[in-house]
């Protein structure tokens, strides 16, 4: 068994809104091994980005514990957290708003190195390190004094990646890192992320709504629906043998760029229900074709059904018991 790098236990994050408590993340547990890529998928508003931010403590969890390399980090103070940021970094979705428009490429990449006192400001060592990072992510040297607005989305995302890598982290939350990019650029960035992972032994929590991207890049995939994990399995297993009715509908809804695979499509009724003060019971019950009485009363737990395959559904549980 490989070394565990991250463990989250019973994470909850509620936001207070005028209409009531918004349950963005409502009791999520998972564990990640060193060097693994865990894909976190779900539709907009299901809480996947919130999880990423809570793990890095960019948001404080309402409840629950986060362990990084067996150390409980949920209670660390600001100073201890700064130290930890060297090991845990994030790549943001929007390469347009996540870069300071007043800083040049080299200043953006150098900023974490200066904040963490790794190199002194304005010396040749810093310059060398910035150029090394630019080279690592495939940014041409001549762009060193360029500003973000002069560059296209793909290059900006490369800056975001270089900045995340500057502190030589072990763990990176990649929050929709390719969603804003065109497919040909998207493919370039995905290849870069995979190369860097091999080279530097990185662990990725890869958050996305794009199921073909997640299958391509992940070892394991967790599917989220309204603040809860509904299914978690190795990537191939999930696509071959999805068990949760939501996962099945989600997978069948992807338009496949091939004319040979004519699949039965499961079209879901309705839209996502509100995450504000949710009623007890399975969050998916209202849209589920198989919902039983029980589904509206009790919360299904995420349980292992073999092969590292976990699912939270009473239907699956009952089938297994019979």
């Amino acid at each position: 068994m490989a070394e565990s790098i991250l463990k989250v236990k019973g994470i909850k994050k509620y936001f207070s809104t005028p209409k009531g408590m918004l349950h963005a993340v409502d009791g999520v547990d998972f564990e990640m091994e060193k060097g693994e890529t865990l894909g976190l998928v779900g539709e907009s508003g299901c809480g996947k980005s919130t999880i990423g931010r809570v793990i890095l403590r960019l948001l404080e969890p309402t409840e629950g514990e986060i362990y990084f390399e067996d150390k409980n980090i949920s209670q660390l103070n600001k100073k201890e957290m700064i130290k930890l940021r060297r090991d845990m970094q994030i790549i943001f979705q929007d390469p347009f708003s996540s870069l300071n428009p007043r800083l040049s490429v080299s200043e953006i990449i150098a900023e974490p190195l200066i904040i963490h006192n790794i190199v002194k400001k304005k010396n040749s060592e810093l310059e060398k390190e910035v150029l090394r990072l630019m080279d690592l992510v495939g940014l041409a040297k001549r762009l060193v004094n360029a500003y973000p607005h002069e560059l296209d989305g793909g290059r900006r995302q490369r800056i975001g990646i270089a900045r995340a890598l500057a502190l030589r982290p072990k763990f990176i939350v990649a929050d929709e890192p390719v969603s804003a990019l065109d497919v040909s650029i998207q493919a370039q960035i995905l290849n870069l992320l995979q190369d860097l992972q091999e080279e530097l032994g990185l662990t990725y929590l890869f958050i996305t709504h794009d199921l073909s991207v997640v299958k391509h890049i992940s070892d394991n995939i967790a599917v989220m629906y309204l603040g809860k994990l509904v299914e978690k399995a190795p990537a191939d297993e999930l696509f071959r043998n999805s068990l949760h009715p939501y996962t099945q509908a989600l997978l069948s809804a992807i338009p496949v760029p091939s004319i040979k695979s004519k699949r039965e499509r499961i079209i879901l009724k309705g839209e996502i229900t509100s995450p504000i003060d949710p009623k007890p019971g399975c969050r998916f019950a209202a849209r589920c074709n198989y919902a039983m009485d029980r589904c509206f009363k009790e919360d299904p737990e995420l349980t292992e059904v073999g092969n590292n395959h976990h699912v939270a559904c009473f239907l699956v549980e009952e089938k297994a018991n019979n």
């Binding site: 493919a187 496949v256 760029p257």
Partner: peptide, 24 residues
């Protein structure tokens, strides 16, 4: 052909995508 090579496939596993080099 490059466009098709850039899309991750759900049906076939590939180690690396084959993107079109350069930019628009």
């Amino acid at each position: 052909i490059g466009l098709f090579g850039s899309i991750p496939s759900l049906e076939h596993d590939v180690e690396r995508l084959k993107p079109i080099k350069g930019l628009m």
